[in-house]
Computed example of a mutant assay.
Amino acid sequence: MTDQHAVYTPPAGYPILTPLYDIGVRLSTREKRWRRDLVDLIEPKCNEVLLDIGAGTGSLAPLLATKNPATTYFGIDPDEDAIQIARKKAGRAGIDAEFKHGLFSVATVAKWPAPNIATLCLVLHQVPYEEKLRLLCDINEALKPGGRLFIADYGEQQSRLMRVLFRATIQQLDGVSDTQPNADGALVPLMEQAGFLSITECKRYQTITGLISIYGATKASADE
């Protein structure tokens, strides 16, 4: 059995900090801005299924429901404490969202409908290089043909200031070995290696913890 603690870091770096994760992200990443922009880029439709990989404390689900409550939402995360918070958050918001505790793979979401859209928010910088590629490959396999992927995460740190801030904050919490590939610009080549097409850096956000980017990409359609 895979040791899930070997391939992911808790949302705030340490399990004891999970209850403080929402506050920390809100204060340090301009979360309100990039999450709102992410949902606008997704443009959720009534007949679409969205799979939120690394759903964390479930912050995306209420925003998605506000944009289009008829979009079907599924979220999975390996952190049980975070998933419990996500379920409570969805309950308070009165939205229909299903959450699963576990590591994402094609097999672990096989009982859910195949998604049209997949999201990864602040996940890839916290896992080893090989796990970054595995996640992207499994997402490509799980998506319907022509499906879309959106990643909101720390990407290439494109200025000295952003590199310094990233080193002083995120790399102190989450370690250097997992986070450095993101800072060096590895995300786009990894997405290409996983088979994604039309990869675009849609938005950038300078934050006190480094540069956060939103990337969009598509899975090949059935006739490609």
Rank of each mutant, 00 (worst) to 15 (best):
L41D: 09
L41R: 11
I42K: 00
I42T: 02
I42E: 02
I42F: 01
I42M: 09
E43T: 12
E43K: 06
P44H: 04
P44S: 07
P44N: 04
P44Y: 01
P44G: 03
P44M: 06
P44D: 10
K45Q: 15
C46H: 11
C46Y: 04
C46G: 10
C46D: 15
C46K: 13
N47K: 07
N47A: 07
N47W: 09
E48A: 05
E48Y: 08
E48P: 07
E48F: 01
E48D: 13
V49N: 13
V49Y: 10
V49L: 08
L50S: 02
L50T: 00
L50W: 01
L50C: 06
L50Q: 01
L50A: 07
L51E: 07
D52M: 09
D52G: 08
D52C: 12
D52H: 08
D52K: 04
D52N: 14
I53R: 00
I53H: 04
I53N: 00
I53V: 15
I53T: 03
I53L: 14
I53G: 02
G54W: 00
G54E: 02
G54A: 11
G54C: 12
G54H: 04
G54M: 09
G54N: 05
G54S: 09
A55Q: 06
A55D: 05
A55N: 06
A55P: 04
G56S: 06
T57A: 15
T57K: 02
T57C: 15
T57D: 14
T57W: 07
T57F: 11
G58I: 05
G58V: 05
S59Q: 14
S59G: 15
S59Y: 06
S59R: 13
S59P: 09
S59D: 13
S59F: 11
L60A: 11
L60P: 03
L60T: 11
L60Q: 11
L60F: 08
A61S: 15
A61Q: 05
A61N: 09
A61H: 03
A61D: 09
P62G: 14
L63G: 07
L63I: 10
L63P: 05
L63C: 07
L64F: 06
L64R: 02
L64I: 11
A65R: 00
A65Y: 03
A65L: 12
A65M: 11
T66K: 15
T66I: 12
T66Q: 14
T66M: 14
K67A: 15
N68I: 06
N68S: 11
N68L: 10
P69Y: 02
P69I: 03
P69A: 10
P69K: 03
P69Q: 08
A70T: 12
A70I: 01
A70H: 11
A70D: 14
A70P: 00
A70C: 11
T71Y: 00
T72I: 12
T72R: 12
T72Y: 03
Y73A: 03
Y73F: 14
F74N: 07
F74R: 03
G75F: 03
G75P: 06
G75W: 00
I76N: 01
D77C: 13
D77S: 10
D77K: 01
D77H: 05
P78Y: 08
P78N: 06
P78Q: 07
P78F: 07
P78D: 10
P78R: 03
D79R: 08
D79A: 13
D79L: 03
D79E: 15
D79Q: 14
D79I: 04
E80H: 13
E80G: 13
E80C: 08
E80K: 13
E80L: 12
E80P: 10
D81M: 14
D81Y: 08
D81R: 15
D81C: 14
